[in-house]
């Protein structure tokens, strides 16, 4: 496996450093060759920067990719937005040699060059493709058998697919495969692929952002999902923080929101607190309690063993 730089992005480092913690813990556990590198800026956030100045969007992303290209590394990020934005620009420049030449003309003056050689991957497809479910299973200490998990891919983990090439953009499977690999049930439901709607909070439309969160949380509550699992800081903000705000106003859903790295970390044997899960706004205790109860049950095999080899009536 090639060395890879981790692109943490602004949201995780500013608001959710505990996500960085659990990500580092799982990367260490698998002894993956990850690097922290100097010089990254905001990816940049498309819904902000590209709406103001397309050129700023392109040159900023191209510069970030150039840093990794130069070192001969690949790039992996636990943020869907970051990967999607960087890959969008990489795709645009690869498809458009004239634009690439213009951008490299500018980058040259600061001593950089975009070649687009680094592969850019989100952490979930990376774990699926490069680490593999088999390796994960070998390292796991506990599984999630009996747990009902609702997955939220996050639009930018899989779209735009021409740039990301991460999974099927309308019928993705890799995150599901990982969750099933961890032994949990991945629930199938109407709003599974619905956009989280966090973007509305970034344009002063908080009530509409809550409307979006409510649609999914209502369905999850009705289905009695044990948790919503995702791997994007914006989606996390939407479902953890905004759910909390709704609960403060008396609307109770009680759906713990768990980051993929936290779930994986639990399976590897870390405890919730060292993974930083006590920093969530929505309490994860109900999830953890049910998990403990299920794990405390004797294994099915115990009864069968007993029946086959224990005392019998045959004399």
């Amino acid at each position: 496996m090639k060395d890879f730089a981790v692109f943490w992005g602004c949201t995780i480092q500013t608001r959710f450093p505990f996500i960085e913690k659990s990500t580092r813990m799982v990367l260490e556990s698998f002894k993956l060759p990850y690097r922290d590198i100097d010089g990254f800026t905001c990816c940049p956030e498309k819904s902000l920067v590209n709406n103001v100045d397309h050129g700023a969007f392109v040159v900023t992303a191209a510069r970030n990719v150039a840093l990794v290209d130069e070192l001969g590394y690949d790039l992996v990020s636990p943020c869907t937005g970051c990967v999607s934005n960087l890959a969008t620009v990489k795709g645009e420049l690869k498809a458009n040699p004239r634009e690439k030449a213009e951008v490299n003309g500018l980058l040259k003056e600061i001593g950089r060059e975009f070649t687009g050689t680094a592969s850019l991957k989100h952490l979930v497809p990376f774990f699926h493709d490069a680490v593999g479910i088999h390796t994960i299973k070998q390292k796991m200490k506990r599984d999630f058998k009996g747990m009902r998990i609702a997955l939220h891919y996050g639009c930018h983990m899989i779209r735009p697919s021409h740039a990301l090439k991460a999974d099927d953009p309308l019928n993705p499977v890799k995150f599901d495969n990982l969750i099933r690999g961890l032994g949990a049930e991945s629930l199938q439901f109407m709003t599974k692929l619905m956009c989280c709607g966090q973007g509305l909070d970034r344009i002063d439309e908080h009530d509409k952002a809550l409307d979006f969160a409510r649609v999914k949380l209502k369905e999850l509550k009705a289905m009695k999902a044990d948790a919503l699992v995702l791997c994007c800081p914006s989606c996390f903000l939407q479902f953890d923080n905004n759910q909390f705000l709704m609960e403060k106003e008396g609307e109770k859903f009680g759906i713990p929101v768990i980051y993929f790295t936290e779930l994986l970390g639990l399976a590897l044997g870390f405890d919730a607190e060292e993974l930083g899960m006590n920093n969530h706004r929505i309490d994860c205790t109900p999830f953890l309690k049910k998990w403990e109860e299920l794990s405390a049950r004797p294994a099915v095999s115990a009864g069968i063993e007993e029946g086959l080899t224990g005392p019998n009536a045959l004399g």
Partner: peptide
């Protein structure tokens, strides 16, 4: 967590001015 890595702010500002 370790100290965060240096940001590319200065280089970015140069690049944006060049653009």
């Amino acid at each position: 967590l370790p100290e965060p890595k240096a940001s590319g702010a200065e280089e970015f500002r140069k690049l944006y001015a060049l653009l």
